[in-house]
């Protein structure tokens, strides 16, 4: 187990290097150190000397990928790519274009993101599984057909519609909850209800369909027949046997998401004015702030890889057949 985790973490390194390579290439393709210096120094009256001085000051005077002036290993290590990447690896994200510390911003903003994403995730998961089990219990009935029709309709409507319609109905017409905003602590609960509900509802259609098909696949298996032959009631069969086995494929899709919940939801946060990482990202995109986008990409990848490892570990816990090597 320990050896396995160590190996997976070692495997993560080339992946993160790859991610960095992609972002780095994207970043410097359009934003060379010269451009950055010019932008920072102000558009007017920049001399090549000033640019060079700025680059030296800020550590941008090295070549991108390959340093021909150095010898040996430092041909590769004394480059912008390696130095910039190393900073990311210790989560030193540097400054945004507006001069703020990105790491501090991220730390501050991930809690509001989590306040929305975590309840949405948990309530959504539980509702989806419960409803799916219910219609599997009544499979082939009118309830099944009707739910499936509603599910297709739900997943065919744009998520933006639910947000807009929800805001208009619950906030504007009925005045049940504030239309947007955020407060920390219990006071903030009223701001969270609507986005969480909308998030859960928008995911219902595809969720129910997916879980239903997983459970239906299980229900025709031999061990379920054995369980019935034991004299278990259909409900017991579903909860004691089908659910447990049906959950295994669900793990793959679900556990990997958990760490990335920190990243928040771009759309939700910007519509509801939540000061989380999602709206942080969207603001950065609109302001074309590459430093922030790059940091978020790196953070997202790290969280995703953690998610992959967690998925594997969760399998050893839930599936006795899996032993990690």
């Amino acid at each position: 187990m320990f050896a396995y985790i160590v190996r997976r973490l070692l495997f993560a390194v080339p992946i993160l290097i790859g991610v960095n390579l992609i972002t780095f290439a994207l970043f410097f393709m359009v934003n060379t150190p010269d451009d950055m210096a010019r932008a920072q120094l102000g558009a007017k009256q920049t001399t090549p000397e000033m640019i060079q001085a700025w680059k030296v000051d800020h550590g941008y005077d090295k070549p991108l990928f390959f340093n021909t002036e150095s010898a040996g290993l430092s041909k590769i290590s004394e480059t912008l790519f390696v130095e910039q990447s190393l900073k990311l690896f210790v989560f030193d994200f540097g400054q945004s274009d507006s001069g703020r510390q990105i790491s501090a911003d991220i730390y501050e903003r991930m809690w509001p993101s989590l306040a929305i994403a975590l309840p949405t995730f948990i309530i959504g998961l539980v509702t989806n599984i419960a409803l799916a089990l219910l219609i599997v219990l009544f499979r082939g009935s009118v309830l099944d057909t009707a739910t499936m029709m509603v599910a297709v309709a739900i997943m065919s409507i744009s998520g933006l519609f639910y947000i807009i319609a929800g805001q208009v109905l619950f906030s504007k017409i009925w005045h049940w909850v504030p239309i947007s905003g955020y407060e920390s602590g219990w006071e903030g609960l009223k701001f969270l209800i609507l986005p969480v509900l909308i998030g859960v509802f928008a995911g219902l259609g595809s969720g129910i369909r997916w879980y239903r098909s997983l459970f239906l696949e299980e229900i025709n298996k031999d061990y379920v027949r054995t369980a019935r032959a034991k004299g278990l009631s259909e409900i017991k069969v579903l909860f004691a046997h089908v659910l447990q086995n049906g959950l295994l494929p669900i793990l793959t899709g679900v556990v990997v998401v958990i760490p990335t919940l920190f990243m928040g939801s771009l759309i939700m946060e910007s519509f509801f004015g939540i000061p989380g990482l999602g709206s942080y990202t969207i603001d950065a995109i609109n302001a074309q702030d590459f430093s922030i986008v790059k940091s978020m990409v790196f953070l997202g990848s790290v969280l995703y890889i953690i998610g992959l490892i967690l998925t594997d570990i969760s399998y050893t816990y839930f599936d006795p057949r899996v032993r990690l090597q």
Binding site: I22, L26, M29, T281, V293, K294, M296, G300, Y304
Partner: peptide
């Protein structure tokens, strides 16, 4: 590697580059 980058972010980054 590609999967590990959050989808919207990767698209956003690429589109930003494209715009420039």
């Amino acid at each position: 590697t590609l999967n590990s980058i959050p989808g919207v972010l990767l698209i956003a980054a690429a589109v930003l580059v494209m715009q420039v």
